[in-house]
């Protein structure tokens, strides 16, 4: 005898032979309905659990940055200055590296070569940001792009330097700012012209960083030749708002070139003499990238303008941040 499906649905479809069928009182029909409801409910619930549902949204913890005194809320919380905080560093040569003869705190990795203790580097004009990139500025980037930072990256107050950023995080911010400034109608004209000419927002090379920190008079510390607890945030407990240590007498008026957070550069960590070339000869080695300036955790020696730190590009630490430069690639 040919059997047939029951499913508790009596008298429907092609019933070709008499065959006992479950009656609804068997409980099959309500059971099937319950099963169907269960599956439909699970499906609907799981649909709401889809991680990517809803497109690009700010990650948890990223809120639209609040207005901050001294920063422009209509320009991604960049400083409220004519050039949005970019400070011109004129072209010209400077002496790079350190020597114990003139600076007892100099490290071995600051020596220029086996024969020279220091070297002369000539740089074209560039614009370095007056302050370290802040939490609020980085949050603006995160909100605009959906970029996923580490959980701690945006935890500090908005006017503190952003920390817990990897080297690629810093590069991503700089690339985004290039595009954002180029596209925004209220970008100051000098910046717009340079961007139109192919200049880009980047991480500074370590030469650009050191020249801006040393200044024309070749300082050991950004504010002079001796360590001073009143001039920078170091040997402390945490970051402080950018620009907390006024330094009008620092070269070019840049703030926090010593202390607060270490600052990523775009230079691979390799022995001097410095070249602006990519480090393509050591691709087999683990990558390390130069960071400068020391941090709130460091002793004064690491705040020297010549001190070179080597950072794991994937490291996200509370004492590592960055500032950006506008320059020709």
């Amino acid at each position: 005898m040919r059997a047939r499906l029951a499913f508790g649905l009596r008298g429907q479809h092609a019933v070709t032979e008499p065959s006992p069928v479950m009656s609804p009182s068997d409980g099959s029909r309500p059971g099937l309905m319950l099963l169907a409801l269960l599956i439909a409910g699970v499906g609907a619930w799981m649909f709401t659990q889809t991680p990517s549902r809803g497109g690009t949204e700010p990650p948890p913890g990223a809120a639209p940055p609040p207005a901050l005194p001294g920063f422009r809320s209509d320009a991604w919380l960049l400083p409220d200055e004519p050039l949005l905080g970019f400070v011109k560093i004129p072209e010209g040569p400077f002496l790079m590296g350190g020597t114990p003869a003139t600076d007892p705190g100099a490290f071995d990795n600051e020596r220029w070569s086996s024969t020279l203790s220091r070297g002369t580097v000539t740089l074209e004009t560039y614009y370095l940001s007056r302050y370290e990139v802040t939490v609020a500025q980085f949050a603006a980037f995160v909100v605009d792009t959906g970029y996923e930072p580490a959980a701690e990256t945006l935890a500090a107050p908005g006017d503190h330097p952003v920390s817990h950023v990897s080297w690629p995080d810093a590069l991503a911010y700089a690339d985004w700012l290039t595009g954002a400034l180029a596209a925004a109608p209220n970008t100051p004209e000098p910046l717009r012209q340079r961007l139109a000419a192919g200049w880009r927002v980047m991480l500074p090379t370590e030469a650009q960083w050191e020249k801006a920190a040393r200044g024309p008079d070749d300082r050991i510390y950004p504010w002079g030749d001796t360590a001073d607890r009143a001039r920078a945030n170091f040997q402390g407990q945490t970051t402080v708002p950018v620009g907390s240590y006024a330094c009008d007498d620092c070269p070019y008026g840049l703030a926090d070139m010593g202390g607060n957070v270490w600052e990523w550069t775009r230079s691979p960590y390799q022995p001097y003499p410095f070249t602006g070339d990519d480090d393509v000869d050591t691709l087999g080695d683990d990558a390390l990238w130069v960071m400068r300036g020391g941090s709130f955790t460091d002793p004064e020696r690491n705040l020297r303008t010549g001190t070179r730190g080597g950072g794991d590009p994937g490291a996200r630490r509370p004492f590592m941040g960055f500032r950006v430069v506008l320059a020709t690639p």
């Binding site: 990897s166 590069l171 480090d279 050591t282 990558a287 794991d312 590009p313 994937g314």
Partner: peptide, 16 residues
């Protein structure tokens, strides 16, 4: 970026 964060030098340079 992920290559770079894994300290693979070519990945870092390719970001530049």
């Amino acid at each position: 970026a992920q290559a770079c964060e894994l300290r693979f030098q070519a990945g870092c340079l390719n970001l530049l």
